[in-house]
Simulated assay, not measured.
Amino acid sequence: MIDVILLEDEPVLRSELGEFLEQVGYAPQCVASLAEWERHFDARRHRLAVIDIGLPDGSGLALIQRLRQGGQQVGIVVFSAHNTSADRVGGLVTGADHYLGKGCDLDELEAVLAALARRLGLQRREARWRLELGAGRLLPPGAPPVPLSPQDVRVLRCLMRAAGESVSRSQVVQALGGDVLDYDQRRLDTQMRRLRRNVHAASGQELPVRTLPGNGYCFYEAAAVAE
Protein backbone atom coordinates (compact mmCIF):
# COMPACT_ATOMS: atom_id res chain seq x y z
CA MET A 1 0.00 0.00 0.00
CA ILE A 2 1.07 3.59 -0.58
CA ASP A 3 1.51 5.67 2.56
CA VAL A 4 -0.56 8.86 2.76
CA ILE A 5 -0.32 11.45 5.52
CA LEU A 6 -3.63 13.21 6.25
CA LEU A 7 -3.64 16.56 8.10
CA GLU A 8 -7.17 17.40 9.25
CA ASP A 9 -8.09 18.98 12.59
CA GLU A 10 -11.81 18.09 12.67
CA PRO A 11 -12.01 14.72 14.51
CA VAL A 12 -15.05 13.19 12.79
CA LEU A 13 -13.91 14.17 9.30
CA ARG A 14 -10.36 13.01 10.04
CA SER A 15 -11.69 9.62 11.11
CA GLU A 16 -13.97 9.33 8.07
CA LEU A 17 -11.23 10.31 5.63
CA GLY A 18 -8.75 7.97 7.27
CA GLU A 19 -11.21 5.10 7.02
CA PHE A 20 -11.97 5.96 3.39
CA LEU A 21 -8.29 6.04 2.46
CA GLU A 22 -7.79 2.68 4.10
CA GLN A 23 -10.81 1.23 2.32
CA VAL A 24 -9.49 2.27 -1.10
CA GLY A 25 -6.11 0.69 -0.45
CA TYR A 26 -3.87 3.35 1.08
CA ALA A 27 -2.04 3.30 4.40
CA PRO A 28 -3.12 6.56 6.09
CA GLN A 29 -1.25 8.38 8.85
CA CYS A 30 -3.78 10.79 10.36
CA VAL A 31 -2.63 13.91 12.22
CA ALA A 32 -4.62 16.82 13.66
CA SER A 33 -2.18 19.73 13.79
CA LEU A 34 1.06 21.12 12.45
CA ALA A 35 2.78 19.96 15.63
CA GLU A 36 1.61 16.38 15.02
CA TRP A 37 2.70 16.65 11.39
CA GLU A 38 6.22 17.55 12.50
CA ARG A 39 6.31 14.50 14.78
CA HIS A 40 4.97 12.00 12.26
CA PHE A 41 5.87 13.14 8.73
CA ASP A 42 8.58 10.97 7.17
CA ALA A 43 9.65 12.11 3.71
CA ARG A 44 11.06 8.64 2.92
CA ARG A 45 7.67 7.04 3.54
CA HIS A 46 4.97 9.66 3.01
CA ARG A 47 4.99 10.41 -0.72
CA LEU A 48 1.37 11.61 -0.78
CA ALA A 49 -0.31 14.14 1.52
CA VAL A 50 -3.85 15.45 2.01
CA ILE A 51 -3.71 18.79 3.83
CA ASP A 52 -6.37 21.07 5.30
CA ILE A 53 -5.71 24.82 5.24
CA GLY A 54 -7.27 26.14 8.45
CA LEU A 55 -5.51 24.48 11.38
CA PRO A 56 -5.53 25.16 15.13
CA ASP A 57 -1.83 26.00 15.25
CA GLY A 58 -1.12 27.60 11.91
CA SER A 59 -1.71 27.57 8.17
CA GLY A 60 -1.66 24.57 5.89
CA LEU A 61 -0.51 26.87 3.08
CA ALA A 62 2.55 27.85 5.09
CA LEU A 63 3.31 24.16 5.58
CA ILE A 64 3.03 23.51 1.83
CA GLN A 65 5.29 26.46 1.07
CA ARG A 66 7.87 25.17 3.54
CA LEU A 67 7.75 21.68 2.03
CA ARG A 68 8.32 23.04 -1.46
CA GLN A 69 11.10 25.38 -0.38
CA GLY A 70 12.76 22.38 1.27
CA GLY A 71 12.65 20.46 -2.00
CA GLN A 72 10.14 17.84 -0.82
CA GLN A 73 8.67 15.89 -3.74
CA VAL A 74 5.59 14.74 -1.84
CA GLY A 75 2.37 14.86 -3.87
CA ILE A 76 0.04 17.34 -2.14
CA VAL A 77 -3.74 17.54 -2.29
CA VAL A 78 -5.39 20.43 -0.46
CA PHE A 79 -8.74 19.39 1.02
CA SER A 80 -10.36 22.53 2.40
CA ALA A 81 -13.67 24.24 3.15
CA HIS A 82 -12.12 27.39 1.65
CA ASN A 83 -12.95 26.72 -1.97
CA THR A 84 -13.32 29.97 -3.89
CA SER A 85 -11.46 30.50 -7.14
CA ALA A 86 -8.97 32.72 -5.32
CA ASP A 87 -8.44 30.03 -2.66
CA ARG A 88 -7.76 27.38 -5.30
CA VAL A 89 -5.37 29.57 -7.25
CA GLY A 90 -3.53 30.52 -4.07
CA GLY A 91 -3.15 26.90 -3.05
CA LEU A 92 -1.83 25.83 -6.44
CA VAL A 93 0.57 28.78 -6.65
CA THR A 94 1.88 27.94 -3.17
CA GLY A 95 2.77 24.43 -4.27
CA ALA A 96 -0.24 22.11 -4.02
CA ASP A 97 -0.68 19.65 -6.88
CA HIS A 98 -4.47 19.60 -6.56
CA TYR A 99 -7.07 21.59 -4.64
CA LEU A 100 -10.39 20.01 -3.64
CA GLY A 101 -13.27 21.47 -1.68
CA LYS A 102 -14.58 19.50 1.28
CA GLY A 103 -17.95 19.10 -0.41
CA CYS A 104 -16.51 17.04 -3.24
CA ASP A 105 -17.31 13.38 -3.80
CA LEU A 106 -14.64 11.24 -2.13
CA ASP A 107 -14.34 9.25 -5.36
CA GLU A 108 -12.77 12.42 -6.79
CA LEU A 109 -10.22 12.43 -3.98
CA GLU A 110 -9.40 8.79 -4.76
CA ALA A 111 -8.99 9.59 -8.47
CA VAL A 112 -6.73 12.57 -7.74
CA LEU A 113 -4.50 10.51 -5.44
CA ALA A 114 -4.29 7.73 -8.03
CA ALA A 115 -3.29 10.23 -10.72
CA LEU A 116 -0.64 11.73 -8.43
CA ALA A 117 0.71 8.28 -7.59
CA ARG A 118 1.05 7.46 -11.30
CA ARG A 119 2.77 10.78 -12.01
CA LEU A 120 5.24 10.27 -9.17
CA GLY A 121 5.91 6.69 -10.20
CA LEU A 122 4.63 5.24 -6.95
CA GLN A 123 3.76 1.57 -6.96
CA ARG A 124 1.40 -0.08 -4.54
CA ARG A 125 3.38 -2.69 -2.67
CA GLU A 126 1.79 -6.09 -3.11
CA ALA A 127 1.26 -7.38 0.38
CA ARG A 128 0.71 -11.11 0.50
CA TRP A 129 -1.26 -12.12 3.56
CA ARG A 130 -1.28 -15.80 4.46
CA LEU A 131 -3.91 -17.61 6.50
CA GLU A 132 -2.81 -20.93 8.02
CA LEU A 133 -5.94 -22.89 8.82
CA GLY A 134 -4.28 -25.73 10.70
CA ALA A 135 -2.27 -23.43 12.96
CA GLY A 136 -5.15 -21.00 13.33
CA ARG A 137 -3.06 -17.95 12.61
CA LEU A 138 -2.73 -15.05 10.15
CA LEU A 139 0.67 -14.07 8.73
CA PRO A 140 0.71 -10.40 7.70
CA PRO A 141 3.60 -9.46 5.38
CA GLY A 142 6.65 -8.42 7.35
CA ALA A 143 4.97 -8.79 10.73
CA PRO A 144 4.65 -11.44 13.45
CA PRO A 145 1.93 -14.13 13.15
CA VAL A 146 -1.46 -13.24 14.62
CA PRO A 147 -3.21 -16.03 16.57
CA LEU A 148 -6.87 -16.34 15.65
CA SER A 149 -10.00 -17.65 17.30
CA PRO A 150 -11.95 -20.34 15.40
CA GLN A 151 -14.53 -17.70 14.44
CA ASP A 152 -11.80 -15.40 13.09
CA VAL A 153 -10.38 -18.25 11.02
CA ARG A 154 -13.80 -18.93 9.45
CA VAL A 155 -14.34 -15.26 8.60
CA LEU A 156 -10.89 -14.81 7.07
CA ARG A 157 -11.07 -18.07 5.14
CA CYS A 158 -14.28 -16.84 3.55
CA LEU A 159 -12.84 -13.41 2.70
CA MET A 160 -9.31 -14.39 1.70
CA ARG A 161 -10.37 -17.18 -0.64
CA ALA A 162 -12.24 -14.48 -2.55
CA ALA A 163 -9.52 -11.80 -2.24
CA GLY A 164 -10.27 -8.82 -4.46
CA GLU A 165 -13.94 -9.75 -4.76
CA SER A 166 -17.09 -8.73 -2.93
CA VAL A 167 -18.25 -11.17 -0.24
CA SER A 168 -21.78 -10.64 1.04
CA ARG A 169 -22.67 -10.45 4.70
CA SER A 170 -24.83 -13.54 4.17
CA GLN A 171 -21.81 -15.50 2.93
CA VAL A 172 -19.82 -14.52 6.01
CA VAL A 173 -22.71 -15.48 8.31
CA GLN A 174 -22.92 -18.87 6.59
CA ALA A 175 -19.15 -19.31 6.99
CA LEU A 176 -19.67 -18.76 10.71
CA GLY A 177 -22.30 -21.50 10.73
CA GLY A 178 -25.18 -19.11 11.36
CA ASP A 179 -28.69 -19.02 9.94
CA VAL A 180 -28.90 -15.98 7.69
CA LEU A 181 -32.58 -15.41 8.49
CA ASP A 182 -32.12 -15.48 12.27
CA TYR A 183 -28.59 -14.12 12.64
CA ASP A 184 -28.24 -10.83 14.52
CA GLN A 185 -26.20 -8.64 12.16
CA ARG A 186 -24.84 -6.73 15.14
CA ARG A 187 -22.92 -9.87 16.10
CA LEU A 188 -21.17 -9.79 12.72
CA ASP A 189 -20.30 -6.10 13.14
CA THR A 190 -18.84 -6.86 16.57
CA GLN A 191 -16.90 -9.81 15.14
CA MET A 192 -15.35 -7.67 12.40
CA ARG A 193 -14.41 -4.86 14.79
CA ARG A 194 -12.78 -7.31 17.17
CA LEU A 195 -10.89 -9.00 14.34
CA ARG A 196 -9.55 -5.70 13.00
CA ARG A 197 -8.53 -4.61 16.50
CA ASN A 198 -6.77 -7.90 17.29
CA VAL A 199 -4.82 -7.92 14.03
CA HIS A 200 -3.67 -4.33 14.54
CA ALA A 201 -2.71 -4.93 18.17
CA ALA A 202 -0.70 -8.06 17.36
CA SER A 203 0.99 -6.96 14.13
CA GLY A 204 0.82 -3.17 13.96
CA GLN A 205 -0.88 -3.49 10.56
CA GLU A 206 -4.39 -2.68 9.46
CA LEU A 207 -6.39 -5.66 8.27
CA PRO A 208 -6.96 -5.06 4.52
CA VAL A 209 -10.70 -5.62 4.61
CA ARG A 210 -12.90 -2.98 3.01
CA THR A 211 -16.49 -2.63 4.20
CA LEU A 212 -18.87 -2.36 1.25
CA PRO A 213 -21.94 -0.36 2.37
CA GLY A 214 -25.13 -2.39 2.08
CA ASN A 215 -23.29 -5.32 0.53
CA GLY A 216 -20.53 -6.95 2.52
CA TYR A 217 -16.75 -6.99 2.60
CA CYS A 218 -13.70 -7.25 0.37
CA PHE A 219 -10.22 -8.47 1.30
CA TYR A 220 -8.33 -6.18 -1.06
CA GLU A 221 -4.72 -7.41 -0.79
CA ALA A 222 -3.08 -10.47 -2.31
CA ALA A 223 -3.84 -13.47 -0.11
CA ALA A 224 -3.10 -17.16 0.31
CA VAL A 225 -4.96 -19.74 2.37
CA ALA A 226 -3.03 -22.83 3.50
CA GLU A 227 -4.55 -25.94 5.09
Score class of each variant (00 low, 15 high):
150 P>R: 07
209 V>R: 02
122 L>Q: 06
110 E>P: 04
156 L>I: 07
171 Q>G: 02
157 R>L: 04
176 L>V: 04
111 A>K: 05
164 G>V: 04
163 A>C: 11
202 A>W: 13
107 D>M: 12
113 L>R: 03
154 R>L: 10
180 V>H: 09
139 L>W: 03
149 S>K: 13
143 A>P: 06
153 V>S: 07
217 Y>M: 01
119 R>Y: 02
192 M>G: 06
166 S>C: 01
144 P>K: 13
120 L>T: 00
162 A>K: 10
187 R>E: 08
156 L>S: 01
212 L>F: 07
140 P>R: 03
190 T>P: 00
223 A>L: 15
177 G>V: 07
139 L>C: 13
193 R>S: 14
219 F>G: 07
210 R>W: 03
186 R>T: 09
124 R>I: 12
135 A>R: 12
176 L>M: 14
126 E>P: 03
124 R>K: 14
115 A>F: 02
113 L>E: 08
186 R>S: 14
146 V>K: 15
144 P>D: 08
112 V>R: 06
134 G>S: 09
196 R>C: 07
161 R>K: 11
144 P>C: 06
171 Q>R: 15
167 V>Y: 00
136 G>I: 06
131 L>C: 10
159 L>S: 04
123 Q>E: 14
197 R>C: 07
110 E>R: 14
107 D>P: 00
133 L>W: 10
174 Q>H: 06
166 S>D: 13
126 E>A: 12
192 M>Y: 07
153 V>I: 09
141 P>E: 06
224 A>E: 15
135 A>N: 03
108 E>S: 01
191 Q>T: 15
107 D>G: 08
217 Y>H: 03
217 Y>C: 02
190 T>S: 11
111 A>T: 13
118 R>Y: 02
208 P>L: 13
190 T>D: 03
169 R>L: 12
128 R>H: 14
173 V>G: 03
205 Q>I: 01
175 A>F: 00
190 T>M: 04
177 G>Q: 11
